[in-house]
Amino acid sequence: MPALRELQARFARAVLGGPPSGLLDSLVADHLPPARRLAVYRANVHIALLRVLEGGFPATRRAAGEDRFRAAAIAFLRASPPVEPRLHLWGGAFPAWLAAHPETAGQPWLGDLAGLEWAREEVYYAADAPALVPTALAALPQERYPALRLRLHPTARLLASRWPIDALWRGEVASPPPTPAHVLVSRPGMEVQTLVLTAGEHALLAALSADATLADAAEAALDAEPGLDLTAILARHLAAGTFTSFG
């Protein structure tokens, strides 16, 4: 009989979908064959992990269709099972897996859509942090603005895609042509926010998150989108709680 460690290694391989070699001989055979008994555990593991992915990626599931999502999810959970019991941390590699999975080749936007849902998951469970109140900059003299460094809220995630991931996420389109989309996901309070950005707005926030001054970030934003209304954009994000502090 194998020692406990070896027995568990064989068991884990078998329940993930591998061959039950060397394990069936270790199981009691009675009125029900050991392979049938083992199959209960394999089904339990697959369903329990599938439910985790279904819970984290509902829009991706809807967009992919039930059969395609299930096939991709089961292939993923066999290849990349969770590495620890905090299951909310598992699934970060699923978007890239989906993008590369042959079953989803006809829906090239699925990876980026899943990326948006994963950002929402991460943000939901992230540490709480205060948002900069909208009036925080009001008392600041105008001449200080160019050198200002606005820090994005620690939950903020910036996404850019060739595909309209925001419309896909809302279920408004099913089979869209390539249309670039920019999205900010953040949680300044208890609600996860998903804000659609323009290209220039995305460039501004990306530069600020890389610690650029407001002047340098504004330049990057105007490069990406000439004519951008910087004042309006700044007001929008102060109101939305996109920033946490400034210096």
Binding site: V15, L16, V52, P81, P82, P85, L87
Partner: peptide, 9 residues
Amino acid sequence: VEGGHYLND
């Protein structure tokens, strides 16, 4: 848990 994987059962 086995071999660094958590199998959720």
